[in-house]
């Protein structure tokens, strides 16, 4: 799968964030930091910024590592559904939304 940046940055959605989704977002950020041994804090990750390519500049090895950690922590398998994979891994926010929809 390709992690090239998509042409436009995710537009800020008007959907208000609940306390629950904010908590999951932080949990996801911590998972990324721990799994990939990143030298940053949760507050350093812009939830709308790209995870791959730009922003955190993660790569395909990181994606597999993250997939393993997500499966172990949240109990579901990631799948690269055609164009959706880019959507899921676009930003911390999209990844944590995907987790919210699929977690067991």
């Amino acid at each position: 799968m390709s992690f090239k940046k998509s042409s436009k940055k995710s537009s800020k959605k008007a959907v208000p964030q609940t306390a629950e989704s904010k908590e999951l977002e932080n949990q996801t950020a911590q998972l990324i930091i721990d799994t990939l041994n990143l030298d940053i804090e949760i507050s350093d990750i812009d939830p709308e910024d790209y995870l791959f390519g730009e922003g955190l500049a993660l790569d395909s090895i990181d994606a597999l590592e993250l997939a393993m950690a997500i499966t172990q922590q949240f109990g579901f398998q990631l799948r690269s559904d055609d164009s959706k994979n880019r959507e899921i891994f676009r930003s911390l926010r999209t990844l944590s939304q995907h987790i919210a929809q699929n977690r067991n």
Binding site: M1, L78, R79
Partner: peptide, 11 residues
């Protein structure tokens, strides 16, 4: 296909 995630391989 060139599957990437384990689930893709299984599919």
């Amino acid at each position: 296909s060139k599957p990437f995630f384990p689930q893709d391989i299984s599919d």
